[in-house]
Design a protein around this nucleic acid. Sequence first.
DNA 1: AATGAATGAGGTTTCATTCAT
DNA 2: TATGAATGAAACCTCATTCAT
Lengths: 199, 199, 199, 199
Amino acid sequence: MSLKEKEKELKKNLIAEVALQLFSSRPFEAVTVDEIAREVGCGKGTIYLYFKNKDHLLTCLISRELEKLCHDIEEQCLHNADLLTAIDNYLVLQFQFFRGYNQILSSWVRRRLQNQVREEWMEDIQNKLGRKLEMAVAVFERGQEEKRLIPVESYELARLLEAIFQDATFPFVGEKSWDSDPERIISLMKLVLTRGILA
Amino acid sequence: MSLKEKEKELKKNLIAEVALQLFSSRPFEAVTVDEIAREVGCGKGTIYLYFKNKDHLLTCLISRELEKLCHDIEEQCLHNADLLTAIDNYLVLQFQFFRGYNQILSSWVRRRLQNQVREEWMEDIQNKLGRKLEMAVAVFERGQEEKRLIPVESYELARLLEAIFQDATFPFVGEKSWDSDPERIISLMKLVLTRGILA
Amino acid sequence: MSLKEKEKELKKNLIAEVALQLFSSRPFEAVTVDEIAREVGCGKGTIYLYFKNKDHLLTCLISRELEKLCHDIEEQCLHNADLLTAIDNYLVLQFQFFRGYNQILSSWVRRRLQNQVREEWMEDIQNKLGRKLEMAVAVFERGQEEKRLIPVESYELARLLEAIFQDATFPFVGEKSWDSDPERIISLMKLVLTRGILA
Amino acid sequence: MSLKEKEKELKKNLIAEVALQLFSSRPFEAVTVDEIAREVGCGKGTIYLYFKNKDHLLTCLISRELEKLCHDIEEQCLHNADLLTAIDNYLVLQFQFFRGYNQILSSWVRRRLQNQVREEWMEDIQNKLGRKLEMAVAVFERGQEEKRLIPVESYELARLLEAIFQDATFPFVGEKSWDSDPERIISLMKLVLTRGILA
DNA sequence: AATGAATGAGGTTTCATTCAT
DNA sequence: TATGAATGAAACCTCATTCAT
């Protein structure tokens, strides 16, 4: 029995992995269930054995990745004794996460606006995002206590940084060249965010 | 003759206005041409009299709004004698623009990824975005000469701020409450961006 | 009054001429009323002042050209003293007519099959085709009396030749090169039709 | 596995059969996919499971029938020892083919003129038509060697006969009654083609 | 008489989801 | 459990025709 469940879990993960790749490379609407099944190497119906829905599949992916992110933040930021390193790590993690999953997150928001995401699935995501935010708040709170941050409400600060990183990774307009060197971008962002743009 | 053209222009603007509202409230895919026509109070075919395409309609909207933005930036930033005010205005304009048109812009990017935006229409948008960026660069360049900005390549800085504002306005996850007070957000952003988060 | 009518006639002819060109170059369905109007240099509505219908326009064209053909056949065949020359002329006229107007004729038949051609318009065409056929029959009848044709019912022979020329000019498959030399085709046809393919 | 494929093939054939009937009775444009589906007794989408396109469906039909024709010509003409019988058979086969499929062929040509037939599908048809023509050429070549045909280039002769039969079967104007006795038409054509119209 | 803006019926195609095997 | 054939709703777009000016 446990063996069977292990196998199921494995298959579910496989599907999720493949879907992640596809949803990351193209908008949600441009990826068909057919294509996912073909890529996974299973029948179309099989996908519906593991996920209620195309939207459910999307939600599960995000949930999984958010879980990983929370884990990383907890380890590298929350439990990190050095405040500056903690903040630094936080910025990098945010950047990498949003950069990697921007397409997917944006798809999810879009589906949500169209009321295609069931309440129960939404809650799961909201909870994880809440946890993530709380951890950031905790870090900034510590910064306030140590008087090493500008005097701003920690919660607002956390929200702001979250927002900033969301779109700083959005595959937007203008020349593509800028997107091509993440290293530069993140270091530039850290510079601006820690020192401001004024000399 | 001029009267007729005036009327046509008026009608085109009316359609554009209505479409702007709808595309702003919901993703592109969730708005049907039928609905736009109904809202305008005309037949479906009429829309196609003024715009080649649903995608063309979207592009025209953006082009129109970008034009306005460029005009404002030129006036309030480029031609502003005081550097700090110029930068301040720039940040506010960016924020308002992306906040107001984020849904639309995001729709456009998505359609572009699916190769639904004709080359010629894309160029129009790209040109305007280029102009906008150049103006920002010019402002930052001046800041560098006056030694009032951190020593960072102006072009990169402009790109970064553009990116930051794109998503800082993205109607993303988490609690919606945060989105509800733009005034607070923009002042917080300006604080962080000018002074950095470290004390 | 007569002047006005002359002008009307002239305009009607102009529209017919332009439509003829367009319907000859592409299938009926692929030519829009807009395009005809643009090419003529008048408004779309104007066309409907002179013709009830797009199908009516098509019918009128054919009627006009058929009239010309009947005229030519009467002159060059029916009133020609020399039987062989009469037949020869008939073959050439048929060939040129069907070659020039095959697209249009084929369009008309198609529309008729879709019941888009009003009874009254159809009759006009049928009458002219009847006249044309009768003339051919008359020529062949004479040939029979002079015992210079194979003993076949004249009516059937006329119908057969008509049919042969219809499709011998149809812009069909295979290499296009063959179509390119009408002179060769017509002389070859005449050879085969007068002597048969057997040596 | 083979069973499933057999069933699929069967269904594909069923659809093709029904479509053949409909496209034969009316022009391509006048037959809707809905109608085909209804006639077959399946959903609209099912059609697209077996054929990429409405145009693809049309092309497949023609390809299938051309294949049969090629097979018949090979058997009854190319491998026939008696030249006259071979030619006779060829004329009959041509007549029957074009008479039966004229509407469809004409539709195909029309769609091609409107660039609705993909290159790859066109090639398939062209190839088969090429094969068919080559076989006719071979027969006539033999006739030339045996000095039993008028001294005309075999290729041109084959093309001419092809053309003649195409349109001799076109459901054209005039009284329909003539069309009603194929036997008479074909015998008359053979008479004319073998002996010419002159006595 | 001439115009051309407005209309909306109608057709093709896609694709998430179901369900019999 | 796994499959993939079947489905049909839904959306975009075209274009002949009308009619107010």
